[in-house]
Amino acid sequence: MDFISILSIFVLACFVGYYVVWSVTPALHTPLMSVTNAISSVIVVGALIAAAAAGSASSKWLGLLAVALASVNIFGGFAVTARMLAMYKKKERPAPQGDNSHA
């Protein structure tokens, strides 16, 4: 991909991000932070390329360390988000009372 196509993806994604994030309910701002944390660890892609490549031993070990750090974040981030989201519950509606108003 050339620089311009990459830049286009980036700019459009910024707009998508802007509108999607404004639609997030304030009650879920903490899970929003933890899930964005988890997905920004997609940087693991770069770490994997470095760790799998030959040619430089130090580059490989740096890559492996980065894979480990990003994995903490990926697993930890998604798990803690799931744990939080499971806690958000709606009010339990009282058993519907016999509604006879529409006789």
Partner: peptide, 14 residues
């Protein structure tokens, strides 16, 4: 890498 760019833009704007 488009996955990283899209994610970076989302997280950055968030």
């Amino acid at each position: 890498n488009s996955a990283m760019i899209i994610t970076g833009a989302l997280v950055g704007s968030s």
